[in-house]
Design a protein around this nucleic acid. Structure first.
Length: 567
RNA sequence: CGGGGCGUAGCGCAGCCUGGUAGCGCACUUGACUGGGGGUCAAGUGGUCGCAAGUUCAAAUCUUGCCGUCCCGACCA
């Protein structure tokens, strides 16, 4: 490709609304163009990158024996009503009507459509297992699109859905997909981790997320420093801690006027938050109140809380009015002494002694509180987010926390959709069985942003060869004036094309500085520079995007030199 | 959904407080010089100042409403 035949749409300044580096660089390098909040066009150079990502995904998926198909973006309400998700999915599902006033939605995912297909065409256990995939545009009406294509409303996803006669077969394909995903992310050159994940609203038992490690990641992931345990923070369990020490202090009530937050209390009483507790009140199954007790410095994990028996789902914090009515004090003064509702205590809080808590009376707190002596009825459980320094849930080592960008997610769905949509096959024994399902997603467009987050410097993107928009750029100095340079550049360009190198010849009438800056902003891995000086001595200059030093090589060896670099 | 910011040329911004000819830098066009790191000079093109209503002789500027967009928050009692 010659620059003059292409669109090199680089700009010096990124728009003000691009806050993270990948978003800024994608705009500056001219990969994407924003149309509206969360909606981006992919310019020719951006599309080239997408196509390279898709190629890797296709090759690895095909290797795993998955079958590619393509399903519609617009989906009729009926199948969503059948799976019950027309009601469950909420406002992220973009709904609209056609001219006949029939309800439709833009597909945020395709479980319903694929189950509908499987129902029609898979009738016997002999056809199983089978795994379908597509690379398709999805639409999720995100509450807050941000960070460019990292969290956009319209995006491209590779999604796969497998069907099985039983859980064992599902488990096998799940492992195959796990490996396939590792292969894909290896080829993309990512620093990534598969982590145990919460299976969330889609349901199901086993689930892994694949995270690219990056400071700007929206998810927190925890690792053991000794074993290979890794989990999303939503999902990581915390372990029971030692029994509390025996009481040393007496239960004492203290005036704390106007003090509401844990920080206020601790400052006033000169106590560390680690030695205080906070009491959150949520709604129980029967609209009763349930107290959730955490150490002052810990955070509630809502996913964990909502799974506990007796707690209303989804988790709902109590209204302050209701608390005042039933407990006779405001939020900030709730405590565990003489609290006559169900009390669930996080393991860490349960191992405290002589701690501080609210007195269930406005503007008063207790000090020297102790379980057993002062609080008789309570149940210890796992309620909080794990924090750095906690023991690893697998019993080996200590937890560290890093941030990650979720680029892949694999689920075992079980029979959730085949039950509700009645997708069954005739088994070996002649009886109908609802199929087990797995689903496996990769965010194609998010991969590009994640890649840039992980591979950039002050000059721009440093694409790995696998998805770089071009493998090589030829920068001729004075292409339009020096016939020698032009001839050499054209010859080199031609030879590279012969060798199937994805090469860009920068034949624009630009000054060298601009051509260098653009090639670096775009992140093209290899660069050859031709000038009159080189023409005189039969040399050419090579520079790798990833390294700062330049090499002089013989012009006649240039193509084989590049081929070697690309090998 | 709550709070806040912003909306003026393709991009980045000034002008608004104190109403009176719409500006700067980058980019773009033409020409000259230049030619190994976003070069110089000259001459240009490009704007219903987000939309609507109001106040006024006069509104980018003041008022109201709406729209868009971004940030923070939506357990931390």
């Amino acid at each position: 490709m010659k620059s003059s035949d292409f669109l090199i749409s680089t700009v010096k300044e990124a728009p003000n609304d691009a806050k993270i580096i990948s978003h800024q660089l994608m705009i500056r390098a001219g990969l994407i163009s924003k149309l509206a909040s969360g909606l981006y066009s992919y310019l020719p150079i951006g599309l080239k990158i997408i196509q390279k990502v898709e190629k890797i995904i296709r090759e690895e998926m095909n290797k795993s024996m998955a079958l590619e198909l393509l399903m519609p973006v617009a989906q009729p309400a009926e199948i969503w009503q059948e799976s019950k998700r027309w009601k469950e999915y909420g406002p992220e599902l973009l709904r609209f009507q056609d001219r006949h006033e029939r309800d439709f939605c833009m597909g945020p995912t395709h479980e319903e459509v694929i189950t509908n297909i499987a129902k029609q065409y898979i009738r016997s256990y002999k056809q199983l297992p089978i795994n379908f995939y597509q690379i398709q545009t999805k639409f999720r009406d995100e509450i807050r699109p941000r960070f460019g294509v990292m969290r956009s409303r319209e995006f491209i996803m590779k999604d796969a859905y497998s069907f099985h006669i039983d859980e064992k077969s599902l488990g096998e394909i799940y492992q195959v997909m796990h490996q396939t995903y590792c292969n894909i992310f290896d080829r993309l050159g990512f620093d990534y981790r598969p982590v145990l994940a919460d299976s969330g609203a889609i349901g199901g038992d086993s689930s892994h997320e694949f995270h690219v490690l990056a400071e700007s990641g929206e998810d927190a992931i925890c690792f053991s420093d000794t074993s290979d345990y890794a989990a999303n923070i939503e999902r990581a369990e915390t372990l029971p801690q030692g029994a509390p020490e025996s009481p040393k202090e007496d239960l004492t009530i203290i005036e704390t006027p106007g003090v509401k937050t844990i920080n206020d209390v601790c400052n006033l009483l000169n106590v560390k938050p680690e030695n205080s507790i906070k009491t959150l009140v949520v709604m129980g199954d029967n609209d009763d109140l349930v107290a959730l007790v955490l150490r002052g410095d810990h955070e509630l994990n809502e996913a964990k809380a909502s799974k506990i028996e007796g707690i209303k789902q989804p988790l709902q914090m109590a209204e302050e009015e209701e608390v005042v009515k039933q407990l006779c004090c405001n939020f900030g003064s709730i405590g565990v002494v003489n609290l006559d509702i169900t009390i669930l205590v996080d393991y860490a809080a349960a191992s405290l002694s002589d701690f501080v808590c609210g007195a269930n009376e406005n503007d008063k707190h207790f000090t020297g509180v102790n379980w057993k002596r002062d609080v008789q009825k309570m149940t210890p459980c796992d309620l909080r987010n794990i924090v750095a320094g906690d023991p690893s849930p697998d019993g080996q080592g200590v937890i560290e926390i890093k941030r990650g960008i979720e680029v892949g997610h694999i689920f075992q769905l079980g029979t959730k959709y085949s039950d509700s949509m009645n997708a069954n096959v005739i088994g070996e024994d002649g009886r109908a069985v609802n199929m087990n399902m797995g689903c496996y997603g990769i965010g194609v467009t998010r991969i590009i942003a994640a890649c840039i987050e992980q591979n950039h410097d002050e000059r721009g993107i440093i694409f790995p060869r696998a998805i770089a928009p071009f493998e090589l750029v030829i920068v001729p100095i004075n292409y339009n004036k020096s016939s020698r340079v032009r001839e050499l550049a054209d010859q080199l360009y031609h030879d590279c094309q012969q060798q199937k190198i994805d090469v860009l010849l920068d034949d624009r009438k630009e000054r060298p500085g601009i051509m260098f800056a653009d090639s670096e902003l775009l992140g093209i891995p290899h660069r050859l520079v031709i000038s009159d000086t080189h023409a005189d001595n039969g040399k050419i200059e090579y520079k790798s995007r990833a390294h700062s030093e330049k090499d002089e090589i013989d012009f006649k060896d240039a193509v084989s030199f590049i081929l070697e670099k690309l090998a």
